[in-house]
Design a protein around this nucleic acid. Sequence first.
RNA 1: CGGGGCGUAGCGCAGCCUGGUAGCGCGUUCGGUUCGGGACCGAAAAGUCGGAGGUUCAAAUCCUCUCGCCCCGACCA
Length: 567
Amino acid sequence: MRYSKLLIPTLKEAPAEAQVTSHILLVRGGFIRKVAAGVYSLLPLGMRVVAKIQNILREELGRSGAQEVLLPMVHPAELWQESGRWQKYGPELLRFKDRKGADFAMSPTAEEAVCDLVRRDVRSYRQLPINLFQIQDKFRDEMRPRAGLMRGREFIMKDGYSFHATEEDAKREYKNMYDAYVRIFKRCGLDFRAVEADTGAIGGSLSHEFQVLAESGEDSIVACDKCDYAANVEKAELKRGSMVDGPQSTATGQIQELHTPGKGGIDVVAKFLREDVKRFVKTLIYVADGKPVIALVRGDRGLNELKLKALLGAETFELASDTVVTQVTGAAVGYAGPQGRGVLVYADLEVAAIPSAITGANKTDYHVRGFNLLRDVPDAKVVDLRTAAGGDPCARCDGGSYRAFRGIEVGHVFFLGTKYSEPMKVNFLDAEGKENAAVMGCYGIGVTRIAAAAIEQHHDQDGIKWPVQLAPFQVSIVTAGKEPELAEAAEKLERELEARGVEVLYDDRDERPGAKFATLDLIGLPRQVLIGPKGLAEGKVELKDRRSGERELVSLDAAIDKLGGKA
RNA sequence: CGGGGCGUAGCGCAGCCUGGUAGCGCGUUCGGUUCGGGACCGAAAAGUCGGAGGUUCAAAUCCUCUCGCCCCGACCA
């Protein structure tokens, strides 16, 4: 393929709106262009990368026995009303009316649609199990799309759904998909971890996320350095034992007020008072089913909202608004304390272990020193509330401890049970002639997000360093000079490699060599062939590996063999 | 949705405070020179200054409203 025939609008400067590496490089390299917030067009190079990912998905899923279908993107409201999600899903579900005024939604996920498909035609356990997947544009009206393809509103997703006669069989398939996902992400050249995860709004009881390790990731995960336990921090367990029965301190001093004008927030106050944040008690106010609740964690810790939510058994659960906080504490935000508020108080185990803590005074511009949980809030419920962090002992083994990572979620597998099949009446007759709801699993992969994640892991100052399997072309050819022999050699190489099934991009632009080198490094093709007059005089061309930077001089025929052999 | 920031040529930005001829770099077009790591010289095309309203003799600039975009948080998965 000739460079001059493709639309590859590269940019020297990064667009102002892009902050994240993958976003900048995708735009600069001419892979994508923005159309609206979180909505992008894929240009030829971007489309090629996506096609590579899709091919890997199709091959591996096919190998695992899943069948490809294509469900509609536009779903009638009735389907979502049937599952109850028309009410539950919230504004992230883009809704609209057709000309007759009937309600529809753009599909953010397709449990309803696939259930509707399967229930019509699957009647017997003899037709099960069945595993259907599709690769399709999805739309989620995110409050805050960001970082290009990492978190768009419209994005390409592979979503799969399996139906089973028994729970055992669904779990068998879960494992089957899990294994397929491992193969897929390996083939994509990604450094990833499968982690235990919360099941969130989709529901169900068993779930793993596939997280690509990258600093720019939105998720926090912990992984044991000794055993293979790894989990999203939302889900990560803390080791039972030490803290549960741990030290409950007795008070060592009286409460005394501290004047901390304009110093809201733990870090600011800690700095102001020159005290360790570990001696602080963080007071968080939540609203659970309409009633305020106070949650306490140590100053340096995060609250695991899922733990508290589960503990309360609350339907709705959210961080209180500033107005509610002010109401509850009688002070400005930043000065909340747990004392004497007549509100249910849940304290983390670690909070009970601090003999003399610093916390908010429930009085604007004041904190208190000498706070002791057991003395000062005797009816507080002391429980495990905090988020796991790096350095914590592993909950699943002896002697291991957690290491913390940032991750980009590129895949997610769920065991769903009958959460959707029951309300959607996906029923079948079993061997005894009894009607049962099918047991389901669902499996997602963010196709466009994989492209972004791959760049986050593989780039340098000059641009992208695509893993061969995802690269839009495997080989690029550049000539340095105007001599006709150079172009002849380049064309021969192009012809020979393409005949061997290698995807080649021959940069035939009338540009200076430096400009061509720079763009090819930017778009990140893994192998470059540089044909220059000096080398060619001796019948040699230069091979450059984009990822390692290694170069070698070989004959034209050797180049053909070398690059053509591993297509 | 809360907080912060930005909308001026395809892209990156200056001009706005202190109202008066719309400017720079990159890119693009034409001509010439150059040719192994984003060349140089010369000429040129290209902008409803996000939109609406207001103040004013006069608005990119001041005021009001509005739309869009980015970042942090919350939300979501």
